[in-house]
Design a protein around this nucleic acid. Structure first.
Lengths: 232, 232
DNA sequence: CGACGATTTGAATAGGATCAATGGGAGTGG
DNA sequence: CCACTCCCATTGATCCTATTCAAATCGTCG
């Protein structure tokens, strides 16, 4: 890894209170690489050789079975993926591909486990991150099992709306195919779900969605902080 | 906690390599209690005052939203629940009720976090357990998103079959209502799913299911270790 | 301009949910 | 021991949601 890259990596929350020596041994054998969009980084079933940390860009986690494929989640700067597999020294349960051009830090699994043993602050960071991943997964699961497709879309739109400053319109952060897969539906069905939301003030123009009746949309969506809030 | 209960608690995998002093401070303020079946232990949204460890029996984790309710998972002896909420000092994302009469250890959250800081072996156990919970959740999520209801049931039957020694018949470990909710369907639909599986050698008599054509059932189920195996 | 991929729309189908009614134990009280 | 009750499970009929397959449209990029 180049010395000029160090500061950006050091600034990640994951390494916030980690000692110099532990940090050094973590990055010493690590790679910081830039990948183009749509590159498959890992495949489910592979042995967990590296922990992946997203420095810039965005990564999609997905899984296949039979002939089907579904998106499990996305990872953003500061987030990690397949942490659990690394800690358990098991195979990956998910595949990952870049959703955009992304800079990603790869840390050899063995080094992660060693640093976990030796550095208290890193162990804490790891646990907090793993707990965050777990709770995100549970929320996703609740979303899928307790809501219809239209409700999921409505709540997702409201979340993006909050994220983007609540100014009455939303820029979709991913293409519709990916959003559909995240929400557990087909692209066709997403299209129809958008139509269903039209009477609730939802108008789609490409990747820009205007929300002209938030209160009515909210009434339909019935957002639930125990599903929709990112930080609780 | 009574002194006579200590050995059974000490024997839990979670405390396997924990130092005497850390173990003492963990159990010192803990409760070991027996609860009747169908008792709600915690409700989603509550603050995480205790870590719960199942010593005996079985606990159902479930969640509600709108008027709907769904089972997220079950916890068996040796397993914990709401570990992530305790570590993050956040509110529970799930409710829990006993599925049977159960003995459960309640450890004050603060003590868990303290022991995590002070005892290396406990920290490791916690991380391993949390990683296990996470991977279980991901597998559940894949199951729901990548399979139809009938496929989920077929795979679940095969799993129970393995668990119970693969002798051609299966004793359902929960009542059908709970199984249906775990598999993300209504009781009516579970009943129909069993009928759908009849041509594949599945015959149901109350809680006893005979599997007379495992290979045909397996062909239908297409089990996937990255979804169905408990330990990978 | 032309081609390709992504999105949308339409029609038909399948998979599940809901509502209503019936059957079938397990447990209770006589 | 038996009748009664209640709850769970099953079955039937119908409705709704979502998927599939096919075709048309839109946009973008070369």
């Amino acid at each position: 890894m180049r010395a000029t890259d160090l500061p950006q990596v050091r600034a990640l929350e994951l390494f916030a209170r980690v000692s110099e020596s532990a940090f050094d041994s973590l990055v010493q054998a690590a790679y910081l690489q830039t990948f183009p969009a749509q590159l498959e980084l890992i495949a489910e079933g592979d042995t967990a050789d590296f922990l992946y940390v997203v420095v810039d860009g965005c990564v999609e986690l997905f899984a296949k079975s039979n002939g089907r494929e579904s998106t499990i989640g996305t990872v953003h700067p500061g987030g990690t993926f397949i942490l659990a597999a690394v800690l358990k020294d098991a195979v990956y349960l998910m595949s990952a591909r870049t959703a955009q051009k992304s800079r990603i830090l790869l840390i050899p699994s063995e080094d992660v486990r060693t640093a976990f043993e030796s550095d208290e602050a890193f162990a804490r960071s790891i646990v907090v991150e793993l707990a965050r991943c777990y709770r995100t997964a549970i929320k996703e699961h609740k979303d899928i099992k307790l809501r219809t497709a239209v409700e999921r879309l409505a709540n997702r739109l409201l979340r993006y709306h909050q994220d983007q400053g609540a100014r009455g319109n939303v820029e979709l952060p991913y293409d519709k195919r990916l959003i559909a897969s995240m929400l557990g539906m087909t692209p066709e069905n997403l299209s129809r779900a958008f139509n269903t939301l039209k009477p609730y003030g939802v108008d789609v123009q490409g990747s820009c969605v205007s929300l002209s009746d938030i209160s009515s949309l909210t009434r339909l969506a019935k957002p639930n902080p125990l599903i929709d809030d990112r930080d609780t």
